[in-house]
């Protein structure tokens, strides 16, 4: 257990002693911020127009739902940005150790493969948690100007976090396969995009197959979270995805010994 925490700490320090963490968090917040601004200003305009129409026709102004009209699209945008930024968080975890040779230190120390694997994953998960916590500022601003429901915001964040953990676990896996960080990142993005888009195919295949495909689509399971619905079925889906990624990483590290790394 001590080994695990030692690895977590070292990885976190390493994130913050290189530009990676700052760039990834900064860009994620910046791009989310831009879309936040666009979505919110658009929502305000829609509200004003609705108000004006209501005054013109002397009706009560309609109650427009900020959760459905602004926060939900924002969550969907953020889930897409995470797809592009999180592979940058995981790409170095093993690939860089292989490139620099520190893998020889790690794998000849009395630390089990499970310990360093879990440690590295945890460090990435903590970094992602920080990203989401910072982005929460945007939500707080909404409370100042409007009155959003808190429930959907919380489930939205939970969904976003679980979705991101799935990205991270497969990012970790691809990082074990190569000593080239860029290849690890690109492979991760392509893989995730595939599991994102798999649901879109459902329209063009037989209904039975389509339903099955939707079951595997990473983003289908996110929709309920963004609507404020908490369903353990989706939680289980994401956790299975995470476990799968970690399991494959474990197998990959073990088998690399026999192949000769």
């Amino acid at each position: 257990m001590r080994n695990y925490w030692t690895i977590v700490t070292r990885e976190l320090k390493s994130y913050f002693s290189s530009p990676v963490a700052y760039v990834v968090i900064g860009l994620f917040l910046l791009i989310s911020g831009v879309f936040y601004y666009l979505i919110v200003t658009n929502f305000v305009q829609v509200c004003m127009r609705a108000d004006m129409q209501a005054q013109m026709y002397r009706m009560a102004p309609p109650k427009l739902n900020i959760n459905m009209m602004a926060i939900r699209p924002l969550f969907h945008n953020m889930s897409l940005f995470a797809l592009f930024f999180l592979p940058l968080v995981t790409m170095r975890l093993y690939a860089d150790e292989k490139r620099s040779g520190t893998i020889e230190l790690l794998l000849t120390s009395p630390v089990s493969n499970l310990q360093h694997l879990a440690g590295k994953f945890t460090a990435a998960a903590v970094l992602y948690l920080l990203m989401l916590i910072f982005s929460f500022v945007y939500m707080i601003l909404l409370y100042i100007f409007g009155s959003p429901e808190t429930g959907p915001i919380l489930t939205g964040y939970l969904g976003l976090y679980l979705l991101g953990l799935s990205y991270l676990s497969f990012g970790l896996f691809f990082s074990t396969l190569t000593d080239n960080q860029l290849i690890a990142a690109i492979a991760t993005m392509v893989f995730i995009l595939f599991f994102w888009a798999i649901g879109w195919l459902s329209g063009s295949v037989s209904p039975a197959l389509g339903q099955a495909l939707e079951q595997f689509s990473l983003i289908e399971h996110f929709d309920d979270f963004s609507k404020g619905i908490f369903d353990t079925q989706h939680v289980i889906f994401y956790l299975s995805f995470v476990v799968m990624g970690l399991f494959l990483s474990f197998i990959s590290i073990e088998s690399a010994r026999w192949r000769g790394r």
Partner: peptide, 22 residues
């Protein structure tokens, strides 16, 4: 190993301390 396995972004003391720990 042939190439010393060093986390080059760390300080010498922190690195040795990390190794001692693992």
């Amino acid at each position: 190993p042939e190439n010393p396995p060093l986390y080059t972004e760390m300080r010498v003391r922190d690195f040795i301390d990390f190794v001692a720990s693992i």
